[in-house]
Design a protein around this nucleic acid. Sequence first.
DNA 1: AGTCTACATGTAGGCTCTCTATATGTAGCC
DNA 2: GGCTACATATAGAGAGCCTACATGTAGACT
Lengths: 107, 107
Amino acid sequence: MNPDALRGHMDALLLSVVEHEPLHGYAIIEALRERSGGALDVPTGTVYPALRRLERAGFLASEWATVGGRKRRTYRLTDAGRAELAGERTAWTSFTRVIGKVLDPQT
Amino acid sequence: MNPDALRGHMDALLLSVVEHEPLHGYAIIEALRERSGGALDVPTGTVYPALRRLERAGFLASEWATVGGRKRRTYRLTDAGRAELAGERTAWTSFTRVIGKVLDPQT
DNA sequence: AGTCTACATGTAGGCTCTCTATATGTAGCC
DNA sequence: GGCTACATATAGAGAGCCTACATGTAGACT
């Protein structure tokens, strides 16, 4: 997977993965890997800053927790995040339609 | 259209548009706009450097021509470019499948 | 005790690409 | 003369994803 291809879609991926249950960073990475069938292996250096950015933007909220002696910062979707995710999904659909039209024009 | 979303897909778009007929930069921009139904309006500051990059990479070849007193640099797809385009199309398909799976998991 | 792996978070700096803004010039119309 | 369409090009900004590194706990194995 070309890293640049993910540009601008990472937000949607992250928000989508915490939609139904709050998760901490490490679990988010695993969830992305599982949901994608192993195709997505996003490095920590990408995920952690992105989560902080999304929190700063108000789309995520986080809390610290200690589980089994390890500290976790668990992120959950805010209402604004839920709205953002809906918008991202719509944008994704039209994006794929547009690019698809150019790549494979029905002459 | 969020500019970042195009990251990593611009090459495929440009190669695709000159697949069947050589075009010059300005015509490429118009072709992208038409093929996308108006959704894609790529600025010259994006297209011209990208075309040069693709030529440097060996995927495109260019020639100068003068038409109606105006100078055009016409780009055509090389064999390497044709192979690259095929790869980009495959990558695009798997990319959309992967992202789609994450955004809308069939629980 | 020491080593290794999995778990868990985080930052610094680099890299690349797209965009905005600007520059230059021709052709044709009013 | 001024406007629009045509046509190419570059400099610099901005943003985000990546590599590499830093730090630490828990548990298994030797």
